[in-house]
Each structure stands twice: as structure tokens, then as C-alpha cells.
Computed example of a mutant assay.
Amino acid sequence: MALPSTIYKTSIQLSDIDRGVYESLQATVAKHPSETDERLVARLLAWAIFHEPELSFTRGLCVGEEPDLWVKGPDGRVRFWVEVGLPESDRIIKASRHAEKVALLACGRALANWDQQHLPRLTGLPNLTVVSLDQAFITTLAARLERSITWSVTITEGTVYLEVDGVTHETGIRIKTGVLL
């Protein structure tokens, strides 16, 4: 019998000063049994960093052909495709052909190797933004993960400040290709 997903209630106060975005984000997010806490944290961070009004979580790991987050137009076409992790470059190239905008929050323990192997193939895609965050930042947040998540996220001058339970954590956003959307 398959293990059930774990449900997380999420509330994020987002102040993206760089883009002039100030929102209260609420979502119920399912963590697939094979998903790590670090990956869930990365998905939530991508939701905040690339926030647009209609950006929503997909079925993710359950459906291999969907991104982690997306904005779909009224005609059903994907307008904004957001990946998290270290996907194959072919997957990102294919997404860039089908979506108006594509973003990748590149993160994981093998990020340096992924950069060398895949980033050169992606640098020429005009509708792609690749950013990364320090893995230690993600790991620290994952260690504090609870089923009810309440974060205050401030993004300014290329730095993410995330307050949880009265403690503020910070890391820089490294833009690897494109510009921060």
C-alpha cells in the first residue's frame, strides 16, 4: 500500500521590495512520501521568490510532465513554468519552448556539478531565469519545518530574509541566467 502525502498549511507574508510585491500567501501543500523536507522548503521558497497572482502548486512529483508551480492561461496553456531542484537541461529547454516564461530555483547538494553540466546548455534561452539559494539556508529551514508553516519573507537587493518563530535567516539570491522575474 502506498504511503499518503503529508499535508502542510502554509501562510507566508511576502514583501518583495525589489519587485514591489506585498502579499499574504496561503496554501495547503502536499508533501509526497518520496519528497524531502528540503525539497518542500525549496518549493515554498520558489512560490515566494517567483510569486505572481495566479502562481499555483501542481501535482508535482506525482505527475512527471508538470512543473512544481505554474500559471496557466484561460486557454489551458502554461504561461509560467517553475521548476525546483536540479532537472535535466532537456526538460528546461522543452519547457522554454512551450511556456511564455520559465524559472528554475536550482538547489541541491550536487548544485556545483549541475551548474557545470547543464547551465551552459541553458544560457541562451531568452525566457528562462535560473536562480539559486545557499543549500545550508534551505537545510536550516527544513530542520525547523512544522505542519503549520508561518513565514515572513522579505526580498530586497538580491537577499532573502525569512523570519520563522522570531528568528531571521538570510541568504543571497544568485541569478545564474536571465533576470529575476
Rank of each mutant, 00 (worst) to 15 (best):
T156E: 14
V63W: 01
V63I: 13
E100A: 13
L162K: 03
P53K: 13
G76E: 00
R79D: 03
K72E: 03
T139K: 10
R79F: 01
G73L: 10
R59C: 00
W151C: 09
H51W: 12
A46W: 02
L45I: 09
S89M: 02
R109F: 00
A112F: 05
A110K: 15
T159K: 12
A112Y: 05
P120N: 08
S132T: 14
S132E: 11
K101M: 09
W114C: 08
L128D: 02
A110E: 14
I93K: 15
Q117L: 14
V167H: 12
C107T: 15
R144S: 11
L86H: 08
E52T: 12
P120E: 07
L133T: 09
I93W: 00
K72V: 05
H51R: 10
G73A: 09
H98D: 05
H118Q: 15
K72T: 09
F80V: 05
P126F: 09
I49G: 04
N127V: 08
V153F: 00
P74T: 08
A99L: 09
G124P: 03
K94T: 12
L125Y: 01
T159R: 12
D90M: 10
H118P: 00
L105C: 08
P53D: 13
S152Y: 01
N113D: 14
G60T: 06
R97L: 12
R43T: 01
L104K: 02
N127L: 06
A46M: 04
E54Y: 11
E52K: 10
R109G: 12
I92R: 02
A95K: 03
G166W: 07
L105P: 11
F137Q: 04
L55W: 04
D75M: 05
G158R: 07
F57R: 02
L55T: 03
C107Q: 11
V82P: 08
H118K: 12
T140S: 15
E52W: 00
A48Y: 00
W151G: 07
I49T: 06
S152K: 15
A110T: 13
A42Q: 05
V153T: 08
T150D: 13
T139Y: 01
S96Q: 03
G158Q: 08
A99W: 04
V153N: 03
R147G: 15
L162V: 06
S132D: 07
K72Q: 10
P87M: 05
C62D: 11
L55G: 04
E163C: 13
A42H: 04
G166N: 10
E66K: 14
V167P: 07
C107D: 04
V160C: 08
L122W: 06
L86W: 04
G124M: 06
Q135D: 11
W47N: 01
A99K: 08
R79E: 06
W114L: 04
Q135R: 10
P53Q: 12
A42D: 00
E65H: 13
D68S: 15
L141E: 01
R59A: 09
V167M: 11
N113A: 14
A143D: 10
A46L: 06
S152R: 14
G64K: 12
L162M: 09
A143F: 00
R77G: 07
L44V: 03
V164T: 15
P53C: 02
A106H: 08
T58S: 08
N113E: 15
P74Y: 07
A103E: 01
W70Q: 10
E66D: 13
D115S: 13
V78M: 11
V130Y: 01
R77N: 10
I92C: 05
D115G: 01
R121N: 11
C107Y: 00
